[in-house]
């Protein structure tokens, strides 16, 4: 597969390490989250047949974490973003 890195252009997926569901970005707020939220965060994942947002680490490249939207049925990749930008857009900061 080819992942179109937002900064480096098309790169072979062999350069990346896969971590799965990008919902891992949505770490619960330790001040307010209920135990159920932590359980869901640590253990529950959707088994998507279609477009899925995934985290890929460019270990063989610039060490960026990327959020890759990939169709799990066709491997078509429709968008790629720097995870840091995605996290910021979700309101994550320090």
């Amino acid at each position: 597969m080819i992942i179109n890195h937002p900064l480096l252009g098309p790169r072979d997926s062999a350069e990346f390490v896969y971590m799965g569901d990008a919902s891992l970005i949505d770490r619960p707020d330790p001040d307010t989250a209920a135990p159920e939220d932590w359980h869901a965060y640590a253990y529950l994942r959707e088994n998507v047949a279609g477009d899925m947002q995934e985290l890929w680490f460019h270990e063989g490249g610039d060490r960026s974490w990327l959020v890759v939207t990939r169709n799990t049925l066709t491997h078509e990749i429709s968008s790629v973003a720097l995870a840091r930008d995605v996290a910021r857009a979700k309101g994550r900061s320090k």
Partner: peptide
């Protein structure tokens, strides 16, 4: 300049 893998080495 690019990073790449040669013989599994970054």
């Amino acid at each position: 300049a690019t990073r790449t893998s040669i013989h599994h080495l970054g």
